[in-house]
């Protein structure tokens, strides 16, 4: 299906894939996974397709849905295939903003993490940065190492300060107040995401932030069609062909704010 976005057409395909043939690139949050598994156990439908790269099968959005369905033994999953390398598909990273209640000595707090004190302006989007009233760069040799270090930093804040982060798009992080510490992961390239997923190296949860310019929702594929080994795919594809979308222009607030066009298959 081609979705007209101004003068350009954005190609997406609503179809089914074998659950085992998809490649995640992020770990899941266990509580979130359990919540979704419980929801799938009582639900009759897969409401929203997961977004995958049509070349590599890398799951770009919907990792928790994919993991829940895999854990529950589904053979097939409804997907929306897109060309990940289309410039219209944006890749950003999620910055973490921790409310720490007052000034925090970062060098002491992260004493076992290698830190380089820098000026904020020196940092690039490929840097792993810890920003409070001062700015620190965490050096790394590979993106995998950078995200492993990010995980250590995340755990330190969660375990020692008992605070949960606020996730915001890295590109939208502005000034940090005296009560806050922002951790800015390096901005990944699309080929790095695909490579990591192919090597089965999973990034921490909420590492990448993908924005696809059009997103199908509410497809409500009956789960019974997704559980059978044989014949399921043909039936699901025929089922999807009869769905009729409603075009909703952004922004729309559902479970979160969507800044992309929504094709709602009500």
């Amino acid at each position: 299906m081609s979705v007209p976005l101004g003068p350009q057409l954005f190609e997406l395909e609503l179809t089914v894939e074998k659950v085992d043939e998809l490649l995640p690139h992020e770990e899941v949050i266990p509580e979130h996974l359990e919540r979704l598994k419980a929801a799938f156990t009582v639900s009759l439908y897969q409401r929203n397709p997961v977004i995958v790269d049509f070349r590599s099968g890398c799951v770009l959005d919907g990792t928790h849905r994919w993991a829940a369905m895999r854990a529950l033994g589904f053979k097939w999953i409804a997907v929306c295939r897109v060309d990940y390398f289309n410039p219209l598909v944006e890749l950003d990273s999620w910055a973490r903003v921790y409310r720490v209640g007052g000034p925090l000595n970062i060098e002491e707090f992260l004493s076992d993490v290698e830190l380089e004190h820098i000026d904020l302006e020196e940092g690039s989007e490929r840097d792993l940065l810890v920003v409070s009233q001062e700015t620190y760069r965490v050096p790394y040799r590979s993106v995998w190492e950078a995200y492993t270090k990010l995980k250590v930093v995340d755990e330190r804040f969660s375990n020692q300060l008992q605070v949960k982060p606020l996730y915001v798009a890295r590109s939208s992080v502005g000034k940090v107040s005296v009560h806050e510490v922002a951790v800015l992961p390096p901005r990944l390239r699309k080929d790095e995401v695909v490579e990591l997923s192919k090597k089965r190296l999973l990034l921490p949860p909420k590492s990448t932030r993908h924005v696809v310019p059009a997103r199908p929702m509410g497809v409500n594929v009956p789960l019974k069609l997704l559980s059978s080994e044989k014949g399921g795919a043909d039936l699901v594809e025929e089922f999807l062909r009869q769905k009729r979308p409603l075009l909703v222009k952004p922004p729309i607030f559902l479970d979160r704010e969507y800044k992309e066009a929504i094709l709602y298959f009500m």
């Binding site: 009729r244 409603l246 729309i252 559902l254």
Partner: peptide, 16 residues
């Protein structure tokens, strides 16, 4: 009632 857009109701269009 949930506010789905700045206007309160999300504008949609029947496509097919």
């Amino acid at each position: 009632a949930e506010k789905l857009s700045q206007e309160g109701f999300a504008r949609a269009r029947t496509v097919v």
